[in-house]
Design a protein around this nucleic acid. Structure first.
Lengths: 241, 241
DNA sequence: CGGACTATTGATTTGCGTCAAAGATTGTGG
DNA sequence: CCACAATCTTTGACGCAAATCAATAGTCCG
């Protein structure tokens, strides 16, 4: 457990408050959740596919991916999780239903026991709704992800992912035009449903046409309007109202 | 409202009971939910993309699809809903977060006011968990859908969809080798992220290789083992445990 | 300094999209 | 109940975006 545990989950509280009103008491109850801290390198499995874990993971720092895997071992990333996210909040209610979880970069993760989450929502019905709503926002992002890999060209897919991350890293304040995004081209391919080779070529033309740049784990948006256009991006699904 | 309303929602109760224990009282409370009945032809919009509805739709009969739409109007189906499903249970908690809803065949739908759902879960916390879990199973299906359109060939995608529908139409009793599936090749393409032309060609080779047949809204699985293999299908995500 | 990822580029192949047009089915109104 | 329209299915020819195979740099880290 952590010394400054009393505010460690603040980013999560902030996120919930962006879509659900929470009383001071409810916020304090979240802050009192017990957790253990994990510091991990890149490419560490947090949850294996199909495994039933006994914890929810809170991302405090770094980049984490949720993924599905077919029998051949081919990976499809279904969600990217950034600090403040709880990728497998689901698992408290539906253990084992979310696929695998892996760190893409060095990361700090807090593991909260399911039992503690269940106790919390038993005591505070309003928190149940807030957490439920949070998992539904996650589902909305999944639908957008389906549309992204199902209907769009390589350029559109990658543009869309960059747009989404730009908005999410901004934490509710529009877009960030430069941000840390420690993802490799292989992993970006696993997210977009493309091979790393084609990701590389596509990134090149995006760079050359002055759209966006990904270099050493950092995204620089060169032309935001064009990027949004190229990705057919509408941020509505990321927020309530 | 309906004359035999007292059992109309039974299929939904049954579905919930497949993953969540419900007391008699809780089951009765669901049955008492008020609803209005809608009889619709094919291709009728139940909920427009981005629209905030005031109802949850229960599918009593027919085939319904949830979809996303890009600015060009291209459609990507993100979920197929069969009798017993509540495609937009989400909307009670997160209005407007699910995309559009359209009938693919003639269908009967019961519309339950959000207010009634909210009253229900206020009174019965156990039902909150059951409904939440139901939306999480839906999310698990979405993840599988992402993997399907993101990573697989046309043949694999279509095989996977047929496998999933076979299991879901069986309602918890293994696979059905023949079932009504009133979907057109255009719509199957919108679900799989393929053009109708390529769906047609792929269906032909599947038929010719003795795998599966889709004719006049009916699926006939000719070789179940091979179909499961071709679709890299693992039904684990459809159920709890 | 060496080994393992990661990025880049080229040559070639192929699965799927696009365009087009002809049948087959289904449904509807007279 | 038939006629005709609308929708859905099927097939062909052709083009292209992305996969595949392969090899060389670059970069990070122990």
């Amino acid at each position: 457990m952590l010394a400054d545990a009393s505010v460690a989950l603040q980013p999560f509280v902030d996120r919930l408050r962006r879509h659900s009103p929470l009383s001071d008491e409810e916020q304090a109850a979240i802050q009192r959740l017990p957790f253990s801290r994990l510091r991990l390198g890149a490419s560490r499995e947090l949850v294996r596919t199909g495994e039933k874990s006994a914890f929810c993971c809170f991302v405090a720092e770094g980049l984490v991916a949720r993924y599905a895997e077919d029998r051949a071992g081919l990976r499809q990333i279904t969600a990217l999780q950034i600090p403040g996210d709880m990728p497998d909040l689901h698992s408290a209610i539906l253990p084992g239903g979310l696929g695998g979880l892996i760190t893409l970069s060095q990361a700090t993760v807090f593991r909260v026991p399911h039992a503690a989450v269940l106790r919390l929502i038993e005591e505070f019905p309003a928190l149940t709704l807030a957490l439920w709503r949070d998992t539904l926002l996650d589902a909305a992002m999944l639908m957008s992800w389906v549309a992204n890999v199902g209907r769009r060209s390589a350029r559109q897919r990658i543009a869309h992912i960059f747009c989404e991350m730009s908005v999410r890293y901004a934490g509710g304040n529009g877009y960030l035009d430069a941000f840390e995004f420690p993802i490799t081209q292989v992993q970006l391919g696993e997210a977009a449903g493309l091979t790393n080779v084609h990701v590389n070529r596509t990134l090149r033309t995006m760079r050359e046409t002055g759209l966006v740049e990904l270099r050493s784990g950092k995204v620089i948006i060169l032309n935001r309007a064009d990027l949004i256009q190229a990705g057919d991006f509408d941020p509505a699904y990321l927020t309530v109202d």
